[in-house]
Write a protein that binds this DNA or RNA. Structure first.
Lengths: 179, 179, 179, 179
DNA sequence: CATGAATGAGCCTTCATTCAT
DNA sequence: TATGAATGAAGGCTCATTCAT
């Protein structure tokens, strides 16, 4: 499955060939079919496995802190971190989601990923620290979208996500969502 | 080329078959090869054409307004509008960019798209209305990322981008970037 | 037709494309079909025309000389000359003859080419100067084969057919066929 | 590979279709691609294999005899024999060599074929039995060319290479090359 | 006489998948 | 569990040929 993710990352979903996956794992193509019913099964398995891992990662490692702002700053850094460290996985998910392999039910899986993040925001609203007259989805879109683009820009070499840049970025986000 | 965009939108880049493109345009597959050297040429042509069109659209229609805030609000609505109206085109671009068809030089094309938006932000900084101690890329990432996610959420049915929602969203963005 | 010969010479019979022939003559492919019924017709026409030209060339220019040896030496030089000057044409004929385009009747055409050469040999036999106990075909094979190879070797850069080399070559041939 | 040679012999290089090759070997076309990368690879492989085989055949079976004339007569018969027995292979080589598939390096292969024959001639020159004032290439051209034409004439039904005819032919060749 | 546009047949090739072992 | 060999279905592409003008 790692190999599959790797290939998708370098050559895109189009570039995935059962043959090559097998070769890279040093087994025969036919052997692959013992573990996965077919190509779709392989791809979907990778998708489920990957999202599940990320969900778990979020479930277990979402930073906690008594002070709301600190907590959210932690979440911000955590999301960025995760997107950087698991860029291949995210790239896979992004492509899978746009492919004809995606079925409706698969989407639910994805919604689980940032459930916890929602909770953090909800708490912030309850504590009257975050804007409470805007839907949580909007706050979330801002956080999700901004972090995604930041990482994308770094990957393209347009910015460097050092401490200072991250601080500046978070300051903007914080200004956006705080009451 | 429209047909190609359509197919990519519904079936993904993987789903593009010269055969089907031809059938939908009601010409023979071989006839396609008079206009495009091969599949890659078709895809790349669509990419260039589409980005060029969007660049032109941005060049011509970026809203202007004497008051900075109004100007940026205009830009915000304009971007959202464009992303909604041309969702297929953007979907195509997103997928093409991740495919093995993409070559380095193709990327330059994309940078042109939002050149004008940069200018709007730069003006805002010069007028000392926008935060001027953060790199323009960060401001841009926030705007780009947030709008993308908003549209994505609407497409998924999670939110509705009505007047009120847009106003709320812009308020957040404005709070983020204003001095 | 010259263009066709040219293409066959550089790219082989396989390389002949109606499209390219047309392009090189600066007419449209469809226009080609006014002059030739189809590809086979074009190729066969070239074949007939070329052989006919060579036959005519042999008919008109076969050297004559009262002394038998001189006459045959003339023929030898003449054949070599022709094979060098019309190497493209001969290359075409060679390839056409091995192709599925060749029909039995086409072969007769070829036999005409060296009819006159046969006559020269026959005269030599009658004059009791050439070996008269060997079939004319054998004498002919020796002349034809040797000259072909000589030209081939020159084309490959293995020998140079200068005066001296030609003299040596003819001496061998003469020793072979004289009584 | 034999099938390929066969097809080239009957239908020319143009007539080689991967499809038909496969059908005749009773495997699927795709299976062919396990053994040969593509059509060109198949053709080139056949070429290499065939020339190599012939080279080997010449290396191993070039007749030897203490008396120079006998030795060369042996070579003469041997060449004719080979050209008759392996007419298909020679036909393939001839056509391949004129095709766009041929690359420069491929030619070297061919020069090996008659290396040994050269040696026989060289020995004859050293023994002062063959003409030693003519380049070996000329002697070779005479032998090669004449034998080729003889076999060609037999194939066309113009002569029959029986004992008597061969003797006559060799007498001519011998007269040509002996001192 | 000339053409640009169009086409269908067919070939090469790939690749997911299976079969015999 | 593992594999090498095999395959069928399908897609990309070429090219001789024709059609409307």
């Amino acid at each position: 499955m790692n190999v599959t993710i790797d290939i998708v990352h370098t050559k895109g979903l189009i570039g995935v060939k059962m043959c090559e996956v097998a070769k890279r794992v040093k087994i025969s193509p036919s052997n692959l079919y013992i573990y996965f019913k077919n190509k779709e099964d392989l791809l979907r398995s990778v998708f489920f496995d990957t999202t599940k891992k990320i969900v778990k990662h979020f479930d277990e490692s979402i930073p906690n802190h008594p002070i709301c702002k600190k907590r959210i700053e932690g979440v911000f850094h955590f999301i960025i971190q995760t997107k950087v460290n698991r860029s291949k996985e995210f790239s896979f998910i992004r492509q899978f989601v746009q492919s004809p392999y995606l079925e409706k039910k698969d989407m639910q899986q994805m919604d689980l990923i940032l459930k916890n993040v929602f909770d953090v925001f909800r708490d912030g609203q309850k504590e009257m620290i975050l804007k409470d007259d805007v839907e949580i989805e909007l706050i979330f879109a801002l956080m999700e979208g901004t972090t995604s683009k930041l990482v994308e820009f770094q990957n393209k070499g347009k910015i460097t996500l050092d401490k200072i840049t991250l601080d500046k970025s978070f300051r903007m986000i914080w200004d956006a969502i705080r009451q």
